[in-house]
Amino acid sequence: MMKKLLGLALLAGAATAGTSGVAAAEGTVTANVAFTSNYVWRGITQSDGEFAVQGGADYASDMFYVGTWASSVDDFGADASAELDVYAGITPSLGPVSFDFGVLGYLYPGADDLDFFELKAAASISPTEALSLGAAAYASDEFGGDGGEESLYLEANAAFALSEAFGISGAIGNQEVDDDDYTTWNIGASYAFHGFGFDLRYHETDIDDADEEISFTISREL
Results as ranks from 00 to 15, higher is better:
residue 45 T to D: 02
residue 46 Q to E: 04
residue 46 Q to W: 04
residue 47 S to C: 11
residue 47 S to W: 02
residue 48 D to Q: 11
residue 48 D to K: 12
residue 48 D to V: 14
residue 49 G to E: 00
residue 50 E to L: 12
residue 51 F to W: 10
residue 51 F to A: 14
residue 51 F to N: 15
residue 52 A to K: 00
residue 54 Q to A: 08
residue 54 Q to R: 06
residue 54 Q to T: 09
residue 56 G to W: 00
residue 56 G to M: 01
residue 57 A to V: 13
residue 57 A to F: 07
residue 58 D to G: 12
residue 58 D to H: 09
residue 58 D to P: 06
residue 60 A to C: 09
residue 60 A to V: 11
residue 61 S to Q: 14
residue 61 S to F: 15
residue 61 S to D: 15
residue 64 F to K: 05
residue 64 F to L: 10
residue 64 F to N: 04
residue 64 F to C: 11
residue 65 Y to T: 05
residue 65 Y to V: 04
residue 65 Y to F: 10
residue 67 G to T: 05
residue 68 T to P: 07
residue 69 W to R: 05
residue 70 A to L: 05
residue 70 A to W: 00
residue 70 A to D: 00
residue 71 S to P: 04
residue 71 S to R: 01
residue 72 S to P: 08
residue 72 S to T: 15
residue 72 S to Q: 14
residue 73 V to Y: 00
residue 74 D to G: 14
residue 74 D to V: 11
residue 74 D to H: 10
residue 74 D to E: 08
residue 74 D to T: 12
residue 75 D to K: 10
residue 76 F to C: 10
residue 77 G to Q: 10
residue 77 G to K: 07
residue 77 G to L: 11
residue 78 A to E: 05
residue 79 D to W: 05
residue 79 D to Y: 08
residue 80 A to D: 00
residue 82 A to C: 13
residue 82 A to L: 10
residue 82 A to G: 11
residue 83 E to K: 11
residue 84 L to M: 12
residue 84 L to P: 04
residue 85 D to N: 15
residue 87 Y to R: 04
residue 87 Y to H: 06
residue 87 Y to T: 04
